[in-house]
Computed example of a mutant assay.
Amino acid sequence: MRLAAENQLAVAHFAIRSERASDIAAREALLDASFGTNRGLRTCQRLRDGRAPAEGLAFTAVRDDGPVGTVRLWHVKAGGRPALVLGPLAVDPSCRGLGIGAALMHHALSAAAERGHGAVILLGDAPWYGRFGFTAEKTTNLSLPGPFERARLLGLELSDGALDGACGMILPTGAPLTRRTAKPRRHPARAA
Rank of each mutant, 00 (worst) to 15 (best):
M169A: 15
R186H: 14
A58H: 05
S110D: 09
A61G: 05
H107I: 04
L158N: 01
L30G: 06
R180K: 15
E114I: 02
G146S: 06
F148P: 08
A112L: 09
L158Y: 00
N141M: 12
G80T: 04
W128N: 13
T135D: 05
H13E: 14
L154P: 01
G101L: 08
A21M: 15
I170C: 01
C44V: 14
A90G: 10
L153T: 00
W74F: 13
A136C: 12
V71R: 03
V11R: 15
G66V: 05
R20W: 05
S94F: 05
L86I: 03
L163I: 11
A126T: 03
P53G: 07
P147K: 03
A52M: 13
K138V: 00
A102I: 01
T181F: 14
P147I: 06
T173K: 00
A33D: 13
A119S: 03
H13V: 02
G99A: 14
G97D: 08
L57F: 06
A54E: 14
R150G: 11
P67S: 15
L177D: 15
D32T: 07
G161F: 05
A33K: 12
P93D: 12
L156G: 04
G97T: 04
L3Y: 13
L142E: 05
S159Q: 10
L171C: 13
G174S: 07
Q45E: 11
S22I: 03
L30K: 04
L86T: 02
A112Q: 03
G97R: 08
D23A: 14
G124I: 02
A108G: 11
N7M: 12
T178H: 04
A162W: 06
H106A: 10
R51E: 01
L73A: 11
S22N: 06
L158E: 01
T60H: 05
D64G: 15
G56H: 13
